[in-house]
Structure formats: C-alpha cells, structure tokens
Design a binder for these strands. Structure first.
Lengths: 165, 165
DNA sequence: GTATAATTTGGATTATTCTGGAACATATTG
DNA sequence: CAATATGTTCCAGAATAATCCAAATTATAC
C-alpha cells in the first residue's frame, strides 16, 4: 500500500495546529513512530518528513565543517536548513503544531484553509490557494512536456521510413 | 484472454464512486486481488493500475531523499506522483471511490457520464466528452504519422532506384 | 517567591460524511 | 418466456471531521 500519497483538505486551528488524516497518521506511526522533521521549503510549503528521511537528505552534505570555513554558499545552505527545520512529534490526536515563526511565511496562520499533500517520502502542508497555483504549474509543465514528446514522435517517423524498431 | 481491454460506459454515483464491469472486476481480482493505485494523468484521465504495475513505474526513482534536498524539479516530481496517486481497493461490489480532490480536476463529479477504457497494463477512467476528444487526437496523430511514413517511402525510393532492402 | 493570567495542550462530544450492503429494477441469454 | 446476470438506488452503520472545553504549563507582575 502506498504511503504518503493523496491530498487532504483541512485547516489550521486557532492554536496553529494541523490535524492529519487517519491515513497520514498511520503512515507516520509506521515509519518513524511519529518523530518528524518540519522543513520550510523555498517554494512556499511546509514539508513534514520522517526524521530518518530528513537525515538522509542532509547526509548528502559531507564534511560540513571543512566546507563552512571557505564557502559562503555552503554556510548559507547550512543556515537555511538549520533555521527552517525543527523536530516535532505527531500527537496522540494526530496533530502537529506549526512553529509560530514560519506561519506567516507560509500563510499557515490560524483559520487558513490548507491542503496536506503526499510527496512519497513525506507530506507537505500547503496554503490552499498556493497549492492551486502549484498544481497548475505542475500540470502545465507535464502537458507541455507531453506535447513536445508527441511532436518528436511525428518528426521521428519522417526521418526513418518504415517506422521505428 | 486479453486483460484490460475494451470500453465500458458508466457514470459516477452520488458519492463519487464508479462501478467496473464484471470483466474489469475479474481482471483486477486476478492480477492484484483488487489492490490498485489511482493516478491522475496530465492528459485528463484517471489511470487505475494494479499496485505492482505502479510500483514498477515508480521504482525508477532511486535515493529520493537525497535528491529532494537539492532539486526543485525532483521535488515537483515526487509531489506530482504523491499528490495525484492513491491506493484503493476494488470493493466487493466492484466499485472504487474517486478521491474528492481530483474529481473536479478530471470532470468526474457525481452524475457525469464516463468511459472506462482498457489500456493493457490497467484501465483509465475518462469523462465521456473528454474521451471523445482524446480518441480523435489519437486517430489524427496516427493518420498524420501514416501520411508521413508514406511520403518518406516515396522519397526513399527516389534516392535509391530499386527500392529498399 | 508567589499568585494570577494567558497560552498551550490534550481530550471528549457532537455532527457530518462516507462506506458497504441489500433490495429492487433492468437487461440479456438460452 | 423464464432464468440468470448485471446495473441502480437507497439506507443503515461506521468512521471521520469539527468544535468545544478542561487541565496544565508557562510567563509575568507584584
């Protein structure tokens, strides 16, 4: 059975909390016993990853201390992941509290309509309006890519009489 | 005997559910005991694949966590497959529920006329009007390709008297 | 240092939606 | 024409979502 998939509409409660669907809850329960990392993405959503997944993501950075001494780009990268990530635990009621510092940044303030989106390795929490923009971008990109593939298929047959294979 | 072939007209019930034909039901029963993955395609239909088929499709992605940390394209890909896919089980009555989040996106809202189309590795659920457009596109593409092939065949014989082979 | 207030957290209750199944109607085949 | 298989509709039970409230912890002021 697929983990971390689908979309769930929800909202931020008056205390800045979000409740996950039962599906998502059990996915987190199974994978990491509810131990997650919240990470603020530059595209404007809050990623929620099992702790282990986040560790893998950061393990990609090797020898950070050495690089940090000489590279501003690298220091800013450490800073970005450090300041915009934090550990949380999904509560017994299946809720997490969004850190107040990043609520305004992501339009996830109390009362806002949100969408919890599966991303295979974890989920993402989007402001509903922002998600509409994002899915539109994703779809139009995929469409354009498809159109180009169809065009290439026609051009291909022109170049090789008898067709492919 | 061919699996996942042909077309069946049907409709979406008041609760957003679709009933498969007995043929399609037994195809899913045989292949995957009814465990399927629904995936929203960019061309505007809902693909229904046996879970194993979908897993093969996605196994192409290796080391997803590491790539996700540094690539927007990669994150959007995870997001696309994650948010637009979900596990379902064909019920004892041969029905599946279309996730509400993707109903509007695909014009598969309650009451809509639909067509369940065989696609060899699984089936696709199309809004009836959209399916008419799609089959038109498929046919005209094939026609155009045929025309170009015939033309290329002429050009070929021009260059080498005696024809090919 | 203590008491009060405010904020946060966890839980329980109520209302709504969803799911599965049964019953009935329709179509098809022998 | 009858019998079987299929499609459709409707309803009851269950699961889920939303709201509200109480307890606890923290912060602040005196």
């Amino acid at each position: 059975m697929l983990a971390f998939c689908g979309q769930d509409k929800s909202s931020v409660d008056s205390n800045g909390r979000v409740k996950f669907s039962p599906r998502t809850c059990s996915d987190f329960k199974n994978r990491c016993n509810g131990e997650v990392v919240l990470h603020c993405l530059s595209e404007g959503a809050l990623a929620v990853y099992p702790e282990e997944i986040y560790m893998q993501m950061r393990r990609a950075e090797t020898r950070p201390a050495e690089k940090a001494g000489s590279s501003l780009v690298f220091r800013r990268n450490l800073r970005r992941f450090g300041s915009l990530s934090s550990s949380e635990k999904v509560s017994a009621q299946g809720r997490i509290t969004i850190p107040s510092g990043i609520r305004k940044m992501l339009d996830l303030t109390p009362g806002e309509e949100i969408v919890v989106v599966g991303a295979e390795i974890g989920v993402e929490i989007w402001n509903a309006a922002r998600w509409d923009d994002e899915i539109e971008k994703i779809n139009s990109h995929a469409e354009e890519k498809g159109e180009r593939e169809m065009k290439a298929d026609l051009d291909y047959s022109e170049g090789s009489a008898g067709g492919r294979e």
